[in-house]
Amino acid sequence: MSAAATTFMAGRMGLDRKRMRGIGLGAIPFLVLLGAWELNTFMGWLKPVYIPPLRAVVDAVFTLQEGCSALGILGMHESCLFTNHILSSLGRVGLGLVVGVPLGIGLGVLAGMSRRLSNAMEPVGVFANAISGIAWVPLAIVWFGVGWFTTLFILLNTVFWLVFFNTLLGVRSVPRTYEHSVLTLGGNRWHIISQVYIPGALPSIVTGVRMGIGFGWRALIAAEMIGGNTGLGFMIFVSANEYKVEEVFLGVLLIGIIWMVTDRIILVPLEKWTIERWGLVWRPS
């Protein structure tokens, strides 16, 4: 291996160590909050009706899952309340992404290529982005009733526009020389789209997907509270009505945890495999 390659590898390893230290630092605020929570239970400052003990929150999982088998979780059996709520929220986000992301990327690329299409779509996009996901809920309930359609509509409204706009901006920011070089190598329009616009816009697309999932997830929870009959938002809402604070806590914690896991397990590695590897992001050395 050449000397240059060796330093390259050493640099990589140094980076991993730095990353580990970063993760360690990021855990501190969580540990502090957890400590304060346990201390409150121990000292009895705030009553369990306001802040339930951590133990009660963990127990709530078992209460909600009572009588549920491993197979029942997958089959979404009615005894598996807790996992059913998680799975239905995740399913909605997943469906919203499966429909919204390709649609947003597709139309975003087309709008990035055509001034006419982007001029036509930009104002309505700004308008739609301004109406937060939750503002659509009452109308969506009137149109689609309580259930899947309503939540999906809310989610699509956030995911699609964010992905669309970011893709559009990403395509516009790709240097023209890339396009010209592929054309002079004999490339056609399809080569330009698949080999220049989409990879070139990827940093922007990933930002759009990230924002889309983030905002979409929040809007979904809100939509489930008002216009849902399953899902984590619905679970929180029902539990609050029944004064089951530990279930409310459980739901809120899970919303945060699920988002963090999605971001760290899917989006961050995706960014590392593509954008960072291609040197398209500025990274402090």
């Binding site: 020389t177 890339y178 010209h180 070089s181 592929v182 054309l183 002079t184 004999g186 080999q195 398209l280």
Partner: peptide, 18 residues
């Protein structure tokens, strides 16, 4: 129009980063 019979070497920023 552009075609592979004429290859072009541009001033800079023309090879694809990905």
């Amino acid at each position: 129009g552009p075609g592979p019979d004429r290859g072009v070497v541009f001033q800079e920023h023309a090879i694809l980063p990905w």
